[in-house]
Nucleic acid binder design. Structure first.
Length: 513
RNA sequence: GGCGCCGUAGCCAAGCGGCUAAGGCAGCGGAUUGCAAAUCCGCCAUCCCCGGUUCAAAUCCGGGCGGCGCCUCCA
């Protein structure tokens, strides 16, 4: 039984989809007016992992992330750049998509754009006006929060508490907390014809329109950053539920926000990372936000592999805020190496790539009977620990811990059985190892990890380097055979200075950059 | 001011009333190695403070202290 923390109830609830077996999931995506920063990746990575885990658990999941491509910020930025809004939006959307790919976020079924859904937005707005929940005011249309009896139920605010003097520019509204569904166009602004004149959608309405169109009036999971609880999600609820007369989403899930650690910029002096890489995020401590500014995520990807950043994001619970710093990601990367080294080890021992293992795609199929096999008994135990953690509100931190336990157990097995020296007559041990590795692949896949080999730091002359390395290793092997350790160590040390590490293993010498 | 979150080892972090408080990074000791690297084994916390509830609390309640978020645009 999966349990989910619901912001609406502030408790963990058993996860039971509206329609048995089917899950509709909507995540608030970006407003595409600037290149994405790491904060934009948190939600997509987490909800991608959640979708994978739900699919793994046997659900048929439809996952939607919207792209808001018309809004005040877009209009301002495009004017700023002297570029049509559509062109700016297209460029920034492309940047966003590329970043998602790098993070292995590929479980999204729909990326609806606001500008492709203007008709639906107008229809929904008209419905709200017809039903008396919204009113027109000089070409604008506002939602009247006093008409929604439970307005504030998500964020715990009361309409009364939000009342304040109506200032000059919001005199068009009846109450200060009312928000725009439709905004009349000023000259030169992008606009669409509507019953209220030319204009464009307000900020919140596109999510109500698109989630309703694709997932239905009531769907299962609505996600987003904690900062969206108010006003964005509160207003979505007001719009959708007033228009449809039924709950918008059953579970509201909010991820913690990424914080830029104040040590950013100071780390790295010690070893490999240098000061130039120090300000991938804001130099300022505190939340990474638009107003504070932070570097483009694409630049970060030039320094860290996508999978390392993904693992970093998944190594803690999604509701917790995460402090970002380069050193933290480096540490996580060090931990990830343990897995990658095991994959290479597995390939040497088993003669097949870890990435070619056909793992079960559902937890049901992945279940196996360990019998009296001591290794498999432990594998099953760690697998269960992983499932228990994930079932408990998608505790990816606990889940990754189980993954570490699992590799360690597998490495220990390879050591004990001396599989690296020789596998002759060890078919049974190999079979057990394969089952263990397959389980690791199964669980990793459920989080969107270890999907495909990390790209080697590709250098054009790999053949040449490979040939030279073979030669050096051969020369060194001869030296070692002759107890000429001076020569052997000279070779290893010199390579070390070039950033190449030699590993003498039972089966021969290997190397890595 | 209103709403809310957090405080577990040097650092990150799981844990949500009851087994010896997961896991990662760093460090130390050992096995292995010609020496290393990798791997494995071991060591490294009574959970911010003070009260209370309970047979039993890191886990619940109250009060402090210390971080932080939202209330305006934000994933």
């Amino acid at each position: 039984m999966i349990r989910v923390y619901n912001t609406l109830s502030k408790t963990k609830e058993p996860f039971e989809p509206v329609s048995p077996g089917k899950v509709g999931m909507y995540l608030c995506g970006p407003t595409v007016y600037k290149p994405s920063h790491i904060g934009h990746m948190v939600g997509p990575v987490i909800f991608d992992a959640i979708k994978r885990y739900l699919v793994y658990s046997g659900y048929d999941v439809t996952f939607v992330i919207n792209v808001t491509d018309v809004d005040d910020k877009l209009i301002a930025e495009s004017a700023n750049r002297g570029m049509p809004m559509e062109k700016l939006a297209a460029e920034m959307t492309a940047d966003y998509m590329q970043n998602l790919r790098a993070m292995a976020v590929d479980s999204v079924d729909h990326f609806p754009k606001a500008t492709d859904n203007i008709d639906e937005i107008i229809r929904l707005t008209a419905t709200l006006v017809d039903k008396g929940f919204a009113y027109e005011s000089k070409g604008d249309v506002y939602f009247d929060v006093t008409k929604s009896k439970d307005y504030g139920k998500l964020s715990g605010r009361s309409v009364e508490a939000m009342q304040c003097e109506l200032s000059e520019n919001i005199r068009l509204k009846r109450n200060s907390a009312d928000f725009a569904l439709w905004k009349s166009a000023k000259p030169g602004e992008p606009s669409w014809p509507s019953p209220w004149g030319n204009g464009r959608p307000g900020w919140h309405i596109e999510c109500s329109a698109m989630s309703g169109r694709i997932l239905g009036k009531t769907f299962d999971i609505h996600g987003g950053g904690l900062d969206l609880v108010f006003p964005h999600h509160e207003n979505e609820i007001a719009q959708s539920e007033s228009a449809h007369g039924c709950p918008m989403a059953k579970y509201w899930m909010h991820n913690g926000l990424m914080q830029a650690s104040d040590e950013v910029g100071k780390v790295g002096g010690r070893n490999t990372r240098t000061a130039t890489e120090g300000d991938l995020a804001s130099q300022e401590a505190g939340k990474i936000s638009k107003s504070k500014g932070s570097s483009a995520f694409s630049e970060m990807l030039e320094v860290f592999p996508g999978e390392t950043i993904r693992f970093f994001l998944l190594s803690t619970h999604y509701r917790r805020p995460i402090d970002f710093s380069n050193s933290r990601i480096e540490e996580v990367g060090t931990g990830l190496e343990t897995f990658y080294r095991f994959f290479q080890r597995y390939e040497r021992v088993a003669g097949e790539s870890f990435y070619d293992l056909a793992a079960a795609e559902t937890r049901e199929k992945g279940d196996f009977k360990p019998g009296k096999d001591a290794l498999l008994a432990d594998v099953a135990k760690h697998r269960q620990a992983f499932l228990d953690a994930m079932d408990d509100d998608f505790n990816t931190g606990g889940g990754t811990a189980a993954l570490f336990d699992l590799v360690r157990r597998l490495n220990k097995f390879v050591d004990q059985e001396k599989l690296e020296a020789s596998t002759d007559g060890k078919d049974a041990a190999l079979a057990s190892l394969k089952q263990g590795a397959t389980t690791l692949r199964e669980l990793g896949s459920a989080l969107g990890l270890f999907l495909k080999p990390v790209e080697a730091p590709a250098e054009a002359d790999d053949d040449l380097v490979g040939g030279l390395m073979d030669l050096l290793i051969e020369i060194r092997a001869n030296a070692r055979k002759n107890k000429d350790f001076a020569t052997a160590d000279r070779i290893r040390d010199a390579l070390g200075e070039l950033g190449i590490t030699l590993e003498d293993r039972p089966g021969g010498t290997g190397w890595q950059r």
